[in-house]
């Protein structure tokens, strides 16, 4: 069962809230203090991407963030509801050439590039019911005291 589940309407102003919640839950789960910045940035990137996808496709459905604390791992799943190629795994993160191409905005691709650069354990999938970015971090095993 998820430790904390968050759903927010696909508005840019709520991404900060998702970052704060994710970092707070990660800290409690025992993710190292030095890694919390990465958690905050990665979840922000994943949520920004989902918000962009929902808005770009005119979806009113909320973005879903599932934070799960397990014995040795803390994982975050960010889900959008924009259908993609069924069973597909999204790879081929854009390089810097794409980002600098004057005709391409490239922010979405750069978001994935940041996530891939930050998180060792990351899985990006897409299917008929939407896409998911799943990321996880090791935990030290001793949760922060209340």
């Amino acid at each position: 069962m998820a430790t904390v589940e968050l759903r927010f309407s696909a508005q840019p102003e709520h991404v900060r809230t998702a970052r704060l919640v994710a970092a707070a839950v990660a800290r409690r789960a025992g993710v190292e203090e030095a890694v919390l910045d990465e958690v905050r940035l990665a979840v922000g990137e994943a949520c920004s991407r989902a918000v962009g996808l929902h808005r770009g496709n005119g979806l009113t459905a909320p973005v879903r963030v599932v934070l799960t604390e397990e014995e040795k791992v803390f994982s975050i799943e960010v889900g959008d509801e924009v259908p993609g190629p069924a069973g597909g795994s999204v790879d081929g993160v854009a390089g810097i050439d794409v980002v600098l191409d004057p005709d391409i905005e490239g922010e979405d691709e750069m978001g994935l590039a940041v996530i891939s650069g930050l998180v060792d354990d990351v899985e990006v999938t897409s299917g008929e019911s939407g896409g998911t970015i799943r990321m996880s971090w090791p935990v030290s095993g001793t949760s922060a005291l209340p």
Binding site: R19, R40, L41, G44, E45, S48, V99, L100, P102, E105, G106, E107, M110, G111, A113, V114
Partner: peptide, 16 residues
């Protein structure tokens, strides 16, 4: 205090 890829995109846009 915080910078994400959207911010990077804006800086790249400024550079262009």
């Amino acid at each position: 205090d915080f910078l994400d890829s959207t911010g990077l995109g804006v800086l790249v846009g400024g550079l262009k």
